[in-house]
Amino acid sequence: MFGELVKGLRTTLKYMFRQPVTVQYPEVKRPVRERFRGRHELKRFADGSERCIGCSLCAAACPADAILVIPAENEPDNPRSPGERYAATYEINMLRCIFCGYCEDACPTNAIVLEHQYELSFYDRRASIFTKEMLLVPEDQGHGEPPPVLKQIERRPSPPAQIDL
């Protein structure tokens, strides 16, 4: 009767002398996997112009209605993006976002990408709205091909979701 109970005790004692599997979070950060879907970033082309052309496809694809895009016409002498328009306002409500990744699937220019940052806490609800300034990568971090090419980035070969508008 008690002989069997000792076996259970042995198992727990065995674990006592093992290294714990937990990670001491703020000091040690577990690296995320390549495909991890975290905080969004608005990318740029190699010459520093914005990839986003303000087409609002991401907003249409969003199941949670978290994205707000207000497009504006590019000034012909000083275009901010290669297309006719650019996003004057680009806001993502991080309280609504469910990180499904449909926006990056929908984006024709691969402007919006879910990157690896996952520490997204904030103190008040107003701070949950991430504006374009916060999302847009710095100018020197433009990457990819020269502006006019509109094709998929090799890194994320997912099928584009075509959305009926």
Binding site: T12, L13, Y15, M16, R18, P20, V21, T22, Q24
Partner: peptide
């Protein structure tokens, strides 16, 4: 601390 080690955790540290 002791029970945390039995459960593969670290416990309050």
């Amino acid at each position: 601390r002791a029970i945390a080690r039995m459960q593969d955790r670290v416990g309050p540290n």
